[in-house]
């Protein structure tokens, strides 16, 4: 076999050619290249034919071998998998256990029929609904509506025995009730609510009028209450670890001040149940 290496140009400017296992010492560069290429070409043609036949043989062998080994490997792999089954099962079960934890449930209203399930959370809409219900009851009271003269109602501070501070924050309920009643024309023309929250300011104003500091009459005719409306919010809450159930009740009473008798007593209930996401429990 001849191997040739080209060593670049020598000091004389001729190409330095070294040859091994041949008698070539020094030849013209062009001749040498030409002969070398023809030899390489022959060699390459020979190799190509050998390789093709070899590849065909190898492919035939390979296809048989592959078929056998594939079956063999699959069997081995199946057997190995069997030993992993407990571990895989454990991992799967862990994922299922984690994934099966429950979502939360928004507090929702339940109907009377579902009272057995119970539960309710405070909602600002409850204030409006309770106010509307009481307003309806007041409008339907003949003692008030059939009276020939103006009637004055004093609303007592609402007692809040629930766990919802919002019910009594900023007198939200009283404001809602008076607003609701003001919308009913037949009622608002006949019945008035006594507002003593600003009593100090009004008294100061009266004194200014009396002293002549400001214009207007200083005569007073403070209205006395004919009726006293009292109310109380109560709740019963239970938490079972999973669900929280709340019953919110509003009890209200109308008292005849002069005779100190109850004109009516009624209540208004809401039940809701809710659940936090299990990630919070």
């Amino acid at each position: 076999m001849t191997s040739v290496s080209l060593g670049g140009f020598g000091k004389s400017g001729r190409p330095a050619v070294r040859a091994e296992s041949t008698s070539i010492k020094c030849v013209d560069f062009a001749d040498y290249i030409g002969s070398s290429f023809s030899k390489i070409n022959d060699k390459f043609t020979l190799l190509k034919s050998q390789s093709l036949s070899c590849l065909v043989n190898q492919f035939e062998e390979f296809s048989d071998l592959t078929q056998n080994m594939l079956i063999h490997d699959l069997n081995r792999f199946r057997n190995r998998l069997k030993s992993y089954i407990p571990i895989l099962l454990c991992a799967t079960l862990s994922m299922i256990q984690a994934g099966c934890a429950t979502d939360g449930k928004s507090p929702k209203e339940v109907s009377r029929e579902q009272e057995g399930k119970g539960g309710s959370f405070f909602n600002t809409r409850d204030i409006d609904e309770a106010a509307a219900k009481i307003a309806n009851r007041l409008v339907e009271t003949p003692r008030i509506m059939n009276a020939k003269k103006e009637q004055y109602i004093l609303v007592d501070a609402i007692k809040n025995q629930t766990r919802f501070p919002e019910l009594t924050r900023n007198d939200a309920f009283i404001e809602a009730l008076i607003t609701e009643l003001s919308k009913r024309k037949e009622f608002s023309e006949k019945v008035f609510f006594i507002n003593r929250e600003r009593a100090a300011i009004l008294e100061e104003e009266r004194k200014k009028k009396e002293s002549g500091g400001v214009s207007g009459s200083s005569d007073v005719d403070y209205a006395g209450a004919d009726f006293l409306l009292t109310g109380k919010f109560m709740d019963t809450a239970t938490s079972s670890g999973k669900e929280t159930q709340v019953r919110l009740s509003y009890l209200y009473t109308l008292l005849d001040v002069r005779r100190q008798i109850e004109v009516f007593r009624d209540s208004y209930d809401k039940r809701r149940e809710g659940q936090r996401d299990s990630s919070y429990r």
């Binding site: 939360g104 449930k105 928004s106 507090p107 959370f121 809710g274 659940q275 936090r276 996401d277 919070y280």
Partner: peptide
């Protein structure tokens, strides 16, 4: 507001 379904909590 944490009562109820929450994708963030979930």
């Amino acid at each position: 507001a944490s009562y109820g379904r929450s994708s963030k909590a979930g």
